[in-house]
């Protein structure tokens, strides 16, 4: 669309800018303030320069949490994106079944995150949970509070349960926008199922898939509540992701300086990645026009 140049449009954006400034910029400045200071209590602060940043960037604790975070987000994308596409392609095509599927699929998305954690905490328990008890009856040694592998399995399957529907619904929306004529043309050409998927459906889903990857990557990168409720970051530190570690440091130990530096590094990583995604996405939009 041809947009007209009009600087008065700033007046329409102003309320948003003010509101977000209040709820984002001021708190962020507080974080910056803490990150360069040291305190010995009593609200006395001393200039500490970049000391905290050096400490965090070089600390093993941060490296480990970051590595776990990348592994987790990678696993999530690797499982949820293909599974979501697969589910979307198998959505029913007519009648009441569509509504039923849509409603049931959206249900996990609207459950408060700590309730999601509670559901899986209960579900996986060996004594009272369906999953844990079934595994025990089958002779599988499954215990997410003691075994690292089981803890990871539980946290990942929980996220797949929670969010795959989002990917599926996005892809479904993309598939819906493909005109029937495309399929008819493919049929005349005698295209195989795979060719239809590869050359018609996948390109048409490109835009929504990018949104899906963006949302899933970002949200899994800042996941906190669900794994915290289920494993509490354990066993040991096996499922301590960045947010969990940060909250531990900031509110548990009240190490304001290091925690603030941690926050900023964490935020910068996310910022960098979202900038990459955003650039790719707007370029795609331009190509599409």
């Amino acid at each position: 669309m041809n947009k007209t140049w009009n600087n008065k449009a700033w007046w329409m954006v102003l309320p948003v800018v003010l509101l977000v400034a209040f709820s984002a910029v001021i708190p962020l400045m507080t974080v910056v303030n803490y990150s360069v200071q040291d305190t010995f209590g009593n609200n006395q602060f001393f200039w500490a320069g970049l000391q905290w940043f050096e400490e965090i960037v070089n600390s093993e604790r941060f490296h480990d949490a970051l590595a776990r975070q990348f592994l987790f987000s990678g696993l999530i994308l690797f499982i949820e994106i293909p599974l979501g596409i697969f589910i979307a392609m198998n959505m029913p095509t007519k009648g009441l079944a569509i509504s039923v599927c849509l409603v049931l699929m959206s249900l996990p998305l609207l459950i408060p995150w700590n309730v999601v954690g509670t559901i899986w905490q209960i579900f996986g328990r060996v004594d009272i949970g369906l999953l844990g008890a079934t595994a025990a009856k089958l002779g599988i040694d499954y215990n997410y509070t003691r075994d690292i592998g089981d803890a990871w399995f539980t946290v990942v399957i929980m996220d797949v349960w929670h969010w795959t529907s989002l990917v599926a619904l996005l892809c479904y929306a993309g598939l819906q926008s493909i005109p029937q004529a495309y399929y008819q043309a493919a049929r005349i050409d005698g295209a195989s199922q795979w060719a239809i998927f590869r050359y018609i459906q996948l390109p048409k889903m490109r835009g929504v898939l990018l949104i899906a990857v963006l949302l899933r990557f970002m949200d899994s990168f800042m996941i906190y509540t669900e794994p915290f409720v289920v494993t509490g970051g354990g066993p040991g530190n096996a499922t301590t992701f960045l947010s969990i570690d940060l909250v531990k440091m900031a509110i548990g130990q009240f190490d304001l300086g290091p925690a603030a530096a941690f926050s900023l590094v964490y935020f910068l990583i996310i910022l960098l990645l979202s900038w990459v995604f955003y650039t790719v996405m707007t370029n795609l939009d331009k190509q599409g026009q």
Binding site: K3, T4, W5, N6, N7, K8, A9, W10, V13, V16, V17, V20, A24, P27, L28, V31, M218, F221, M222, Y224, L242, S243, L246, V247, A250, I251, L256, A259, S263, Y266, F267, I270, L271, S274, W275, Y278, T282
Partner: peptide
């Protein structure tokens, strides 16, 4: 409309969606 700094502003708004709540809690 197009206006001064519109794309930057839009991206800045989006970054707030990406900000981990854990960073802002304290």
């Amino acid at each position: 409309y197009r206006f001064l700094g519109d794309t930057h502003l839009f991206f800045w708004l989006l970054t707030n969606r990406m900000a981990p709540p854990a960073v802002f809690a304290l």
